[in-house]
Design a protein around this nucleic acid. Structure first.
Lengths: 326, 326
DNA sequence: TTGAAAGCGCTAACAT
DNA sequence: ATGTTAGCGCTTTCAA
């Protein structure tokens, strides 16, 4: 059932040389160690013949690095995170690193366990999009000394962070509406994640500053009546926190044969491929995915390879994409 | 820069016992080896105190398994594959396995290299959605003895396959149109992947059998005129191979201020969240993602843990989702 | 009831 | 120019 894998030793035996020699040759250090061309050739051929595949782990064990990065992401099937995953994977790959991904589903209870799961696997560093606030993560972070980068959602001042300023983005989003709104309704899922709360708080702060009426409605069965009320009997400008919420809102509206956009301006926080194919085309505030992903990798490798200290904060602006609904 | 990690030995030293004892206790075999409760407690506390995290690799090295599965996927930011990745990751996690993902971008040249990359990492098995046909993969497959499962795209009779029958799905898709079409136009990307070709071939076979006119048009700049021609001056029923292609088609149509759906029925091969929010709502032939992903994991673990022989083929049907455009 | 020691596959300092 | 050997962290057999 478990056929034995070919190891360095097997090649060494087959060639009548020592493991060291084989190791040197196969790692391109043959010349450096003055191993005769003939022998080098022999070894390389033998390796190919025996279909030798080096055991990465054994190497890692010895060298203390695994060339593997861990990524903790809320939901890799969400297009936003999926893109992040992809870019991170590809950028890391170019630098010789592999990627080990775990979905947290924003399950706060399990998050620290999942992080430990990653650490156990001997990763050289990790990028996390945490569901929990920093204080619950700190115990795990203290258990290890590998570099950690927080992406999209911040840790604390001590921690590396690559993301956006949710508070500020929330504060500024209302200025994007074509017509100055009289009142704002914010739709979202239940706000369990602090940065999302901050985004909504930003909106509210603006409303308070500008003396705008506002209401925040989590989308759920229980609120369906009040949602319909808002759709049908108000002229509020709508803000949806993430495309998923917008889709749910549309479902509700559709099920009740009402047209959401007849008397409402709408901006969605977060972009979605679908938006430009919908009717009307959805205006949104796009998060700078690519930049965040690339910068996260860049930063993490800087920490790992150059031993740079932590605590850098890379805050990027969102990009308004104004199509038809704003 | 590289702070030393706590190892088994450190705990052993701290407790004045041997590494073996610590290992037993920490693996829950304390009782089995009759290690005194007091000592067990001491060891466990010390481990916690020193923030001990076991080194998975060292364990793997010894035990010959890494509890890690490799996944080779064309593009994990494509919603279809993203979902597959997610389900696979979660199902594996439940069984104690980790997931190592690599994007191939359907780059055929690099594919075998990427597979080797996975194998090197000592994975216990792998799930691949290959871009290449089996014959180019065989050399790599022969280098290793780990179980491999082909998902979505088949290998050969020898190989495990979990997917759909592209040929047949192509053949049957035309029956889904509400009105019997006089002619069919198939839009797709350049067909570089055999199963995609098979899907189109299936369609064509049907057209030939039923004496229907057909044309297959790869979407690219060069074909833009002929695409517009089809949109504006034909009444063909349209089939798009994958949502991405549909979106491109819509872009072209939109840029030319024409309405694609005025005189065309359309079915898309492959589902997309956006479809039910578009206007009109897109009819499609949905691939059974969840089933494929789950079955792939199930099958792979069956191979790994029970040593079942390869060569099983699990072919599932696509599901028509008929909304408004068919 | 516990410890010593071998060994998983690999690298690299040290011998020869 | 090439081989020997120790050791990375862990498990497990065997001995005590």
């Amino acid at each position: 059932m478990k056929k034995k894998k070919v190891s360095l030793g097997d090649i060494a035996k087959a060639c009548g040389v020592s493991k060291a020699t084989v190791s040197f040759v196969l790692n391109g250090k043959g010349d450096q160690f003055n191993i005769s061309k003939a022998k080098q050739k022999l070894i390389k051929e033998k390796a190919k013949e025996l279909r030798y595949i080096p055991n990465f782990f054994a190497k890692s064990l010895k060298q203390g690095e695994t060339m593997t990065i861990g990524l903790l992401v809320p939901d890799m099937s969400d297009p936003f995170y999926a893109q992040i995953c992809k870019i991170i994977q590809e950028d890391l790959y170019k630098k010789g690193y592999g990627l080990f991904i775990i979905n947290s589903n924003d399950n706060k209870k399990e998050e620290t366990g999942l992080m430990r799961e990653l650490i156990q696997r001997g990763i050289d560093g990790m990028i996390i999009i945490p569901g929990n606030d920093i204080d619950v993560l700190i115990p795990v972070l203290l258990e290890t000394h590998i570099p950690v980068v927080f992406t999209d959602r911040p840790g604390d001042n001590e921690a590396d962070f690559i993301g956006i300023d949710h508070d500020k983005e929330g504060y500024n989003i209302i200025r994007l509406f074509r017509e100055k709104p009289n009142a704002i309704t914010i739709f979202s899922e239940e706000l369990t994640i602090t940065p999302d709360q901050n985004f909504v708080n930003g909106i509210i702060k603006y409303c308070v500053d500008k003396k705008l009426d506002y209401k925040h409605i989590p989308i759920n069965k229980k609120n369906e009546q009040i949602i319909l009320e808002k759709i049908n009997h108000s002229k509020d400008a709508f803000i949806t926190v993430f495309p998923k919420t917008l889709f749910k809102l549309l479902d509700i509206s559709e099920n009740n044969k009402t047209n959401l956009f007849k008397q409402h301006q709408l901006i969605c926080f977060g972009e979605h491929v679908a938006f430009s194919y919908m009717n009307p085309k959805i205006s949104c505030l796009k998060r700078p995915v690519k930049l965040l992903a690339k910068q996260s990798v860049f930063r993490l490798l800087e920490r790992i390879k150059k031993g740079k200290p932590h605590g850098s904060h890379f805050v990027q602006k969102c990009i308004p994409i104004l199509r038809e609904t704003h």
